[in-house]
Amino acid sequence: MALLDVHDLTVAFPSVTAVAGLSFSVHESETLALVGESGSGKSLTALALMGLVPRPGRVSGAVHFGGQDLLALPEARMRQLRGRDIAMIFQEPMTSLNPVLTIGRQIAETLRLHEGLSARAARLRAIELLDLVRIADPGRQVDSHAHRLSGGMRQRVMIAMAIACNPRVLIADEPTTALDVTIQAQVLDLLDRLRRDLGMALILITHDLGVVGQWADRVVVMYAGRKVEEADPIGLLRRPLHPYSRGLLGASPRLQARAHYRLGRLAEIPGSMASALGQAGCPFAPRCDVRQDKCDSVAPALREMGEARLVACPVAA
């Protein structure tokens, strides 16, 4: 039984459909990675799960969580869930903290809202949380303002705020994109440890396939708001089936042979995602290297290929 079951999720704006009929599910204590290039609808998927899609976006489909459909819940009920049962970490730690409040107050505010703690108790719990996310000297840092902290520390504070109420699902939207490579691993390790210790499901949104390989239990590859492939990460990295997955993998630099630009060009996927606009058949067809005539007219359905593997390409084998 899945903890969070997304069925036929669609996020439409007047000019563009950003997420189109996306379905996936997340199990307890599982890390699901959503992968795709910028504009593939990953972040809007996350915002849709949180009920935070900006106007004039329209969300349809169903998101089943704890016996209820999140998309059908009234805003007041959804607000109680947000931060308590489902929490989210944003991409930009530099701007996601309030500049005029101490980090302790920001963490405490969440605890007072959802758990009804007193100011004193919330402050003590905030110090514990800072300790839990491995911030040195939490008793002193609790009174710091965000501008005194480094990017990595700010992202840890964001994580502390997100896990303050022991959410069952944590969505991390490119949590390490804005951080140094050395800090990235620390933050992801921290998220992974918290997932195990607190039994959370983690939805990890990323475009870094290295991150997927190391930390994810399952991967959903998205293109133009659609799921094009779902697989276990090792299977995907060893043998990507969808031509887009293959292209993504080919475009990732590897430390082995021919990584340096003088030794060989990094592969790229020709064209841009803009070509998916108004495409009747497969959205990836205009950029695909194994395209067939039918791809332009018939939208490919997801096919089961092997165990727990789905591919939306009739050509892939």
């Binding site: 931060g83 989210m88 996601s96 309030n98």
Partner: peptide, 26 residues
């Protein structure tokens, strides 16, 4: 429009709390 306001909404803060506790001090 700031990220910290979106983050506050993501934590389940209501409009009143965001207006008074998050934006007004700024």
């Amino acid at each position: 429009e700031k990220d910290f306001v979106t983050a506050a909404r993501g934590l389940g803060f209501g409009h009143g709390r965001i207006i008074l506790r998050e934006i007004l001090p700024n």
